[in-house]
Every structure is written in C-alpha cells, then in structure tokens.
Amino acid sequence: MSGPTTHWQPSERELARRRTRSRQRRHRVVVASIATVIALVVLGAALVLSPGWPRVRATFLDLHHAKESLPSIVDGFWLNVRMFLIAEPIILVAGLALALARQATSAWLVPVRGLAVLYTDVVRGIPTLLLVFLFVFGMPALGLAGIPNSIFFWATVALVVSYSAYVAEVLRSGIESVHPSQLASAEALALSRAQTMRHVVVPQAVRRVVPPLLNDFVSLQKDTALVASVGLFDALFAAADYGNFNFNFTPYVVAALFFIAMTVPLARLCDVLARRLARRERAGAL
C-alpha cells in the first residue's frame, strides 16, 4: 500500500501510552527477576540445607574427580556423538519411508503397508535395551558371511530400528494433519501422488512435527548410553569405570552435563527455526 509518508509526529497521547507501555514492560521484567531469584534461592536452600548435602557434595560434586575423569569421559562421549550423528539421518529417512508406506494407496503397495504397520507395532513394543542386546549378541551369532561383527555397528542398527518406528509415527501424524484441501489442490494441478507427497504434504507435515521429532532425537542422544550395557566404552561406561575404581560418582554428573550440553543447543535451534517459519508464513494472516 502506498500510504503517504507525511511528516508524522507521535501525539502527546501516543507518547504517554508509550511511557505506560515501557513502564508495564519494566514492571514485568522486575516481577520476572524477583520470581526467578526466589525460585533459585528456594531450590538452592532446599538442596544445601538437606541433611545429606555434605556427603552428596563429596561423592557427586568433587572437582578433583571431575578433572581426573574428564579425558576418558570426553573420549567416551565422542563415541555417543558419532553413534547418533550416524543414526539420526538414517532414522529420519527410514521413518519417513515407513510413514509414507502407511499412506500408500497403490494396490501393489498393500503388502508394504501391512509390513510397515507390523514393523511399528512390533518394534515399539520391545524395550530399546532389549533390541540392543538382540542385535549385538544375536546378529553375529548367526554366523552369516559378510556381515560385520562390530558391537558399535549392531548397537547403532538397534537404535535405528527402534527409533525409526517412533519417528515414523510422529511423521505419520504430521502427514495426516495436513488438510484434505491441500491434497485436492495438488491433485487439481495434476501432480502425481508421489509429487503431492514430496512437494506439498511432507514439507508441511515436517514443519508441524518438529517439536515431537526433536523429542525423539533428544531421547535418541540419551539412549546411545544404552551401549554401555554391552561393553562399549561410551561416556556412561567411562564414568562408571572411573567411579567404581575411585569410589566417587562425580563422573556421572560430568557425563550428564555432556548430554545436556548436546541437547539444549539443538532444542533452541529448533525453536528459532520454527519461529522464523511461523513469522514468514503467518504474517498478517487471520
């Protein structure tokens, strides 16, 4: 709109309103700060004043042991990082394939659809730890030629199998939430079913399910620690190893901090991306 940009000066009333608004803003900031400080003080006091606090501090928060255990935990954590960096993209692709298989309409794909349903039902029902055991110990035991024997490989496979079932269901709910009118307009443009999915439905679906997808990925990052139970030297195993030897649990806290440091930036990044998309697509819309 080509509104005439005359030399507009805010009126007295508007200036007064701005002062009121900034006063309200300041008030909110003060209230928020006070509330935060109170909450922190209460939580901190409850912790520090508890009867077992000196013992807990000595066994869980010992700076010396934290420093000593750090190198091996860093080495171990590198294994966790590699594992989910490899697993995450594969899980996304596999989950999407499963979700799309359940949406397939072609007559030839009916068995695929059935298998996809069966897969999610079965896999989601098995505890992830159990899947790790089954794959790590079971697959090499088959003695098949040409398949790897590495624990790392089979533990990663177990995580991929487990999480692709969860991710598939998340993506499916996103796909089903896209309004039928979107399918109709894609069909009206003579797009094929696959093109409709690729260009219209899936992009919208993925945007909607970013928060639950992130949930699954954070969960996956933590579940890479399950491999400690099959003897892989990851962050948790390194921490346990040090802790058992030195009778101090500080390494567990250190390992926990590593996992938190990994997930928080990812969560914030997703928030920022989602907000940017929402701004772009909904600007001015009713």
Binding site: M1, G3, P4, T5, T6, W8
Partner: peptide, 10 residues
C-alpha cells in the same frame, strides 16, 4: 523489517 514504513491507517 523497518518498523513504521508501511502506513495502513493514516
């Protein structure tokens, strides 16, 4: 991105 540039009600 510049606030106040598009005048809608004048």
């Amino acid at each position: 991105g510049e606030p106040g540039r598009r005048v809608v009600l004048d």
